[in-house]
Computed example of a mutant assay.
Amino acid sequence: MENNAKKLLEQYLSGNCTPEEAAIVEEWYLQLPFERVAPGHEQIETSQQEVFQKLHFPRKVKRIVLLKRIAVAASILLCFTAGLYYLNRKTETAALLVKKELKDVLPGRNKAILTLADGTVVDLDQAKNGEIASQNGIIIRKAQNGQLEYVIQDNPSAVTGNNVISTPRGGQYQVSLPDGTKVWLNAATSLKYPYSFKKDERVVELNGEAYFEVAKDKRRPFRVITSNQVVEVLGTHFNINAYTDEPSTKTTLLEGAVRVDNGRGFLDLHPGEQSQLDFNSSHLTIARGVDLDQEVAWKNDIFAFDNADLKTVMRQISRWYDVDVVYKGNITTEKYFGDIPRNSNLSEVFKILQLNHIDVKISGKTMTITGN
Rank of each mutant, 00 (worst) to 15 (best):
N3Q: 08
N4H: 14
N4T: 10
G15E: 08
N16I: 04
T18V: 10
E21V: 13
A22G: 02
E27H: 10
F34A: 11
E35T: 14
G40V: 07
H41Y: 08
E50H: 10
V51M: 15
F52K: 12
F57S: 12
F57L: 11
R59K: 15
V65A: 11
K68R: 15
R69N: 15
V72P: 01
A74C: 01
A74D: 13
A74H: 07
S75V: 02
I76T: 09
L77F: 12
L78I: 11
T81N: 15
L84Y: 14
Y86P: 05
Y86T: 08
N88H: 11
R89L: 00
T93A: 09
A95L: 14
K100C: 02
L106Y: 05
G108R: 06
K111F: 03
K111G: 03
I113G: 00
T115F: 00
D118S: 09
T120S: 03
V121F: 00
V121H: 00
V122M: 01
I132Q: 10
A133R: 06
S134F: 15
N136Q: 10
I138W: 04
I139T: 13
R141G: 01
R141M: 11
A143T: 12
L148F: 09
V151A: 09
D154A: 10
T167N: 11
T167I: 13
R169W: 07
G170P: 03
G171P: 02
Q174L: 00
Q174A: 00
Q174R: 09
G180H: 13
G180D: 10
L185I: 08
L185C: 06
Y195S: 08
S196D: 04
F197R: 08
K198Q: 04
K199D: 12
E201F: 00
L206V: 09
E209Q: 14
A215M: 07
K216A: 15
K218R: 14
P221N: 05
I225D: 07
V230I: 12
L234P: 01
L234Q: 09
T236I: 02
T236H: 03
I240R: 07
A242D: 06
Y243Q: 04
T244K: 05
E246Y: 09
S248D: 14
S248F: 07
K250D: 14
T252L: 05
V258C: 08
V258F: 04
V260G: 04
D261G: 02
D261W: 02
G263R: 00
R264K: 04
R264S: 04
L267A: 04
G272W: 07
E273Q: 13
Q274F: 08
F279N: 15
S282V: 05
I286R: 13
G289P: 05
D291N: 15
Q294V: 00
K299A: 11
K299M: 13
A304L: 08
D306M: 02
D306K: 15
K311C: 02
M314T: 10
Q316K: 12
Q316S: 12
R319I: 06
W320C: 01
W320Y: 03
V323Q: 05
V323L: 06
V326D: 11
E334V: 09
E334W: 05
E334A: 13
E334N: 13
I340G: 07
N345H: 12
L346D: 01
E348K: 10
F350T: 03
L353C: 04
D359H: 13
I362D: 03
G364C: 06
K365L: 08
K365S: 12
I369R: 01
I369N: 05
N372S: 05
